[in-house]
Simulated scan of single mutants.
Amino acid sequence: MTVLKVDKVSKTYQSGSRQLTVLDDINFSVAAGQSLAIVGPSGSGKTTLLGLCAGLDHVSAGSVQLAGHKLESLNEDQRAEVRSQEIGFIFQNFQLLPTLTALENVMVPMELKGQKDAMKVARELLAKVGLEDRLTHYPSQLSGGEQQRVSIARAFANKPKILFADEPTGNLDTDTGEMIERLIFDLNRQENTTLIMVTHDLELAAKTDRIVHMRGGKLVSDSNE
């Protein structure tokens, strides 16, 4: 089953009097349960593509179908609903809420949906990432690796169909990065989630089922083909 289909997608921005093309005619689809790495040099359009796939931004042309939803035909509220129901995010800079504890950060997505057992599930997820003794710590009291583990637990809180990760080990030292990689892949397998990851780390990319290479806003190779 296909959970993501990107069809003839382009993204342009108006820069003064000229148009800047960031993505040009991108086509690929991802099957449920597959792990995919998007690689390429800085400025190749990787993060822009990830944002379009996740419904964080609008395509200029083409279509993105995410878990059966055509994103370009939805309004902002509908897109936000799809994101909360279908996807999880892991960012390079963690994006934890500084005034909330680790436990509260993981509970947020579930509480927004009115889930009654949010605290119980959050505790279980934090135990899975090895942070059962850090529940009441705030982000400022946690190391970078611990903050990323909180963000991984939060990403899985809503049992997403698809997980988007943008340079998930980019701000971490080598040993911590390797631990985070293992956690992401292990949880991904346990939860049978589809993983789409932007990374400049080719060793990390090689651990995924499939690699697509971007250059100059174009998809130049796909290991599936």
Rank of each mutant, 00 (worst) to 15 (best):
19 Q>N: 11
103 L>N: 06
219 L>K: 08
24 D>A: 09
219 L>M: 14
153 A>S: 10
85 Q>Y: 00
175 D>C: 03
69 H>I: 00
124 E>A: 15
87 I>P: 01
42 S>M: 08
191 E>P: 00
145 G>L: 11
98 P>S: 13
91 F>Q: 09
183 L>G: 07
52 L>T: 08
214 M>R: 08
205 A>T: 06
203 E>R: 15
187 L>K: 08
66 L>R: 09
102 A>T: 01
197 M>T: 12
126 L>N: 08
202 L>T: 10
80 A>K: 04
96 L>N: 02
98 P>M: 08
197 M>I: 15
180 I>C: 05
196 I>A: 04
116 K>I: 09
21 T>E: 13
179 M>E: 15
45 G>Q: 11
54 A>L: 02
161 K>Y: 00
131 L>W: 09
197 M>Y: 06
99 T>A: 14
18 R>M: 10
63 S>M: 10
204 L>Y: 08
61 A>C: 02
181 E>I: 14
104 E>G: 02
127 A>R: 14
138 Y>P: 01
137 H>G: 00
147 Q>N: 06
111 E>R: 15
3 V>Y: 07
183 L>P: 05
11 K>N: 03
108 V>L: 15
73 S>P: 00
225 E>M: 05
21 T>G: 00
155 A>M: 06
104 E>Y: 01
39 V>N: 04
111 E>I: 10
38 I>Q: 03
178 E>M: 13
126 L>C: 03
146 E>V: 05
80 A>Y: 01
110 M>Q: 13
174 T>E: 15
163 L>R: 00
193 T>V: 15
65 Q>L: 13
57 D>W: 01
161 K>L: 04
106 V>S: 07
213 H>R: 13
56 L>E: 05
131 L>Q: 05
98 P>N: 12
216 G>F: 12
201 D>F: 11
23 L>D: 04
220 V>A: 08
223 S>C: 02
94 F>H: 11
189 R>T: 14
135 L>N: 01
115 Q>P: 00
215 R>T: 14
138 Y>N: 01
83 R>G: 07
26 I>N: 04
102 A>M: 04
187 L>W: 13
119 M>T: 11
78 Q>A: 14
107 M>Q: 14
